[in-house]
Computed example of a mutant assay.
Amino acid sequence: MDAMTKMWVSLIGIGLMALAAVIITLARLKTKGFLKLVLSTAAFLLLVVGFLCGLISII
């Protein structure tokens, strides 16, 4: 993998983790019940995918 591809994968990972932080903050402050569970699960999945992108860009 060349340096430019690693850079883009890393930036996508950072963006996904930032999006996950925004979603989990909104889910905790503004929602209740089932919607809160759905948003929290989506945020967790984005966090995991962002972490994997970051890990791939290091390797």
Score class of each variant (00 low, 15 high):
2 D>P: 01
2 D>R: 07
2 D>N: 11
3 A>S: 03
4 M>Y: 10
4 M>I: 05
5 T>W: 04
5 T>G: 02
5 T>E: 13
6 K>W: 00
7 M>H: 08
7 M>F: 10
8 W>A: 04
9 V>W: 04
9 V>I: 09
10 S>H: 11
10 S>M: 11
12 I>D: 07
12 I>G: 02
12 I>R: 06
13 G>K: 06
15 G>C: 00
15 G>M: 03
15 G>V: 04
16 L>N: 06
16 L>E: 09
16 L>P: 04
16 L>I: 01
17 M>S: 06
17 M>Y: 03
18 A>V: 13
18 A>I: 10
18 A>C: 04
18 A>M: 10
18 A>S: 03
18 A>L: 11
19 L>R: 03
20 A>N: 01
20 A>G: 02
21 A>T: 03
22 V>H: 02
23 I>S: 00
23 I>Y: 04
24 I>E: 13
24 I>N: 03
25 T>L: 11
26 L>E: 06
26 L>V: 02
27 A>H: 12
27 A>W: 09
28 R>W: 13
28 R>D: 11
29 L>P: 08
29 L>T: 03
29 L>A: 00
29 L>V: 03
29 L>C: 01
30 K>R: 14
30 K>H: 12
31 T>M: 10
31 T>I: 08
31 T>P: 04
31 T>D: 05
31 T>E: 15
32 K>G: 00
32 K>I: 04
32 K>A: 05
33 G>K: 14
33 G>L: 08
34 F>P: 09
34 F>S: 14
35 L>T: 15
35 L>I: 14
37 L>N: 13
37 L>S: 14
37 L>F: 13
38 V>S: 09
39 L>I: 03
39 L>M: 15
39 L>N: 03
39 L>C: 08
40 S>D: 09
40 S>K: 06
40 S>G: 15
41 T>W: 08
41 T>S: 11
42 A>N: 07
43 A>H: 01
44 F>H: 02
46 L>Y: 12
46 L>W: 10
47 L>N: 07
48 V>E: 01
48 V>R: 05
49 V>H: 07
49 V>K: 11
49 V>E: 14
49 V>A: 15
50 G>E: 07
50 G>C: 12
51 F>A: 15
53 C>T: 02
56 I>D: 00
56 I>M: 13
56 I>A: 10
56 I>T: 04
57 S>V: 03
59 I>C: 00
